[in-house]
Nucleic acid binder design. Structure first.
Lengths: 129, 129
DNA sequence: TCTTGACTTGGAGTGAACTCCATGCTGTAT
DNA sequence: ATACAGCATGGAGTTCACTCCAAGTCAAGA
């Protein structure tokens, strides 16, 4: 699979995918005799992993560290687990903060909807905003 | 309330809080005669709003736009509602992506835990990683 | 053979969100 | 009166994660 095929599959640009490989977010991709990248199933699995983690806001450095540990072999199982756990924990925390913001927004939106329907701003003496 | 008091309450630095005011993430804060910021309840409400939104990853530009609309007065009620709805929608989408990553991590962690307990890497012919 | 489009590299540039710094003013304790 | 911690400003610097670009190579079709 060529770089552009992988890109259109995951909504990335070739620049991004090369960048990911260069900095180690994904392992080095196999090349044809003339030096062109040819993504196999394993490579695509790594791309999928990168896309999933990045879209959730996981820093590239964490992904790089995991790839590094993975490539270092079986002696890093515990370290890999610990790293994944750390990332997991910080995502859970991040989600809590998102939930708080979502709740805040839901509340405000319903207040605006009420105001727009009745034509009355019903929260004058509250927190403003 | 002084800037450092507000900062320690919300885990910000004075630089950040001045920056927020400068770019409009919060409205201008009242000053003492000698020019020192004095945060009242309303100002603190805006800071709280900013912290909540930013910790969820809402771009400063969205917050600025909301503050701008708010300060423009009652004619912007509909625009404010629409903006909040857009932000709400994008946070929901972002949360979905976080959930996907959290699930992926949970799965991997339990696999690592099993491997570390039994001493066997039980997913050899799978997707690797 | 020539063109064209997709691929390669290294390195510079971008945008977002802070973060730091130099320089100077303020206000309270000794 | 003076020291000194805290506040002010404008502007430069940093970090992160891409994103763009120039210059060149490669492969397939006219």
């Amino acid at each position: 699979m060529t770089i552009s095929q992988v890109c259109s599959r995951y909504g990335l640009t070739p620049d991004t995918l090369r960048y990911y490989e260069k900095i180690g977010v994904i392992p080095e991709v196999h090349r044809t005799a003339s030096g062109i990248r040819d993504y196999d199933e394993a490579a695509i699995g790594w791309v999928e992993n990168a896309v999933c983690m990045r879209s959730a806001g996981v820093p590239v450095e964490s992904i790089i560290e995991y790839v590094r540990l993975y490539q270092a072999g079986d002696t890093t199982l515990q370290a890999r687990r610990d790293l994944l756990k750390d990332v997991h924990t910080s995502l859970l925390k991040q989600r809590q903060q998102m939930d708080a913001a979502i709740d805040r927004l839901s509340f405000k939106i319903s207040r605006y909807d009420a105001a727009l329907k009745t034509g009355v701003l019903s929260w004058e003496e509250e927190d403003g905003q």
